Simulated scan of single mutants.
Amino acid sequence: MSKQWASSNNGAFKRQVSSFRETISKQHPIYKPAKGRYWLYVSLACPWAHRTLITRALKGLTSVIGCSVVHWHLDEKGWRFLDMGKQLGDENDFLEHWHDAAGGIKTAKDDTSTSFASIKNDSQRFMVDATNEPHYGYQRISDLYYKSDPQYSARFTVPVLWDLETQTIVNNESSDIIRILNSSAFDEFVGEKYKKVDLVPEHLKPEIDAFNSWVYDNINNGVYKTGFAEKAKVYESEATNVFEHLDKVEKILSEKYVDLKAKNGGVDGKQNIFAVGDQLTEADIRLYTTIIRFDPVYVQHFKCNFTTIRDGYPFTHLWLRNLYWNNDAFRYTTDFDHIKLHYTRSHTRINPLGITPLGPKPDILPL
């Protein structure tokens, strides 16, 4: 995810292809599983990075793979860290903070700030706006890219999965990273309950891949194609397409709720319905990171405003709230302040005054 985006002659948004696509496995000649060898660099605002944080938590890898968080404000030089080395004191305190069972993110709140006006783009609140970079003292994500490849010339995106041993980027494609984290590569370092977690079970993989394919193009990336459209005709076409596919998601989830109600004689807030099959899968994670941002950001900022999730999609809304309120890996990796501030302060072509809307209130409704 980057501040600048590519645009074709017809005004349509074009997403950059990721450059680093290695994996981690016992069979790999270089990148073999190890505790403490790999590090994840993320933005709490970015939906693609958010996928990796959720998966890391669900698989019990918060004490195996460390994490650093960039500042929510993306300036003309890209993502940055805080320069807080002198204030940090003890690196072990940092590591302990980011390795808790909820995924290491302790900034989640039931509602966001009552005012954003006093928060400046250059704010330096440690563990609130961002962390430092603890290994090399780097100031920018770009430093990691140049360390990996001095000739690198594309944009500097997150997430980044880094190898501390070879000091290079293993992978910067979120869909690859979540598959790496979900694999059995790190099973020897986690407890038994996490070894049983499989977000891409073999019997559901074809259905998960098919679901991910149309969700990615039409919803995950669809909101960006809508918001970054530079011609009205392109915008109208993309916005219509997003909501046509949200309708498709709603139909899938509504049919599942009807089936559950018929089987159980009712549905309460603790009975989860999932996008594919009858268990939590990668499909839920990849859809969630867009839907959780929809009402707080995409409705107003990207002009995806046919309706909101909470008002127009009752079954998708229930699915979303079940994931958020009933699973710490989703709730405690979701930071609405980072989400709102990033989009509204970083995309100056879309929001030149940099005023961050306070609503909707609350950011997410209770069950």
Rank of each mutant, 00 (worst) to 15 (best):
Asp363Arg: 08
Pro134Met: 03
Arg56Gln: 01
His317Tyr: 15
Ile339Thr: 08
Arg56Gly: 00
Leu246Tyr: 13
Glu236Thr: 08
Asn305Lys: 07
Ala262Leu: 12
Trp72Asp: 00
Asn212Ile: 06
Ile291Thr: 10
His97Asp: 14
Lys109Cys: 07
Ser153Thr: 07
Phe20Asn: 03
Pro201Trp: 09
Asp363Leu: 12
His245Gly: 06
Ile208Cys: 06
Val242Arg: 03
His71Gln: 11
Asn221Trp: 06
Ser183Pro: 03
Leu358His: 12
Asp247Ser: 11
Gly222Leu: 02
Asn305Arg: 09
Phe126His: 14
His135Lys: 09
Lys86Gly: 05
Asp295His: 07
Gln279Thr: 14
Val17Leu: 14
Tyr38Pro: 06
Ser68Trp: 05
Pro352Val: 00
Ala239Pro: 05
Val69Tyr: 09
Val64Asn: 14
Gln124Asp: 15
Trp39Ser: 08
Thr114Ile: 12
Ala130Thr: 06
Thr23Met: 10
Leu367Arg: 11
Tyr136Trp: 11
Leu95Ile: 12
Thr55Tyr: 12
Ile350Asp: 06
Lys195Arg: 14
Gly265Arg: 08
His347Leu: 14
Phe94Pro: 09
Lys233Phe: 06
Glu230His: 10
Glu282Arg: 10
Leu53Val: 01
Ser123Asn: 11
Gly60Tyr: 06
Arg140Asp: 05
Gly269Ser: 15
Gly266Asp: 08
Pro206Lys: 00
His347Thr: 08
Asn92Gln: 15
Leu44His: 02
Ser63Glu: 14
Ser123Cys: 13
Ile252Thr: 14
Asp110His: 13
Phe274Glu: 07
Leu58Pro: 08
Asp75Asn: 12
Phe294Thr: 02
Asp163Ile: 00
Ile105Phe: 07
Pro47Glu: 07
Trp98Val: 15
Ser148Ala: 08
Lys248Tyr: 08
Asp311Asn: 15
Glu282Leu: 14
Ala45Arg: 11
Ile355Cys: 04
Ser213Cys: 10
Asp268Ile: 03
Ile141Val: 15
Tyr257Lys: 09
Ile219His: 05
Val299Glu: 11
Ala262Arg: 12
Asp149Gly: 04
Phe116Gln: 02
Ser25Lys: 04
Lys303Pro: 05
Asp163Met: 00
Lys256Val: 02
Leu40Pro: 03
Glu76Pro: 00
Arg125Thr: 07
Lys248His: 11
Asp198Lys: 13
Asn221Arg: 06
Ala34Trp: 05
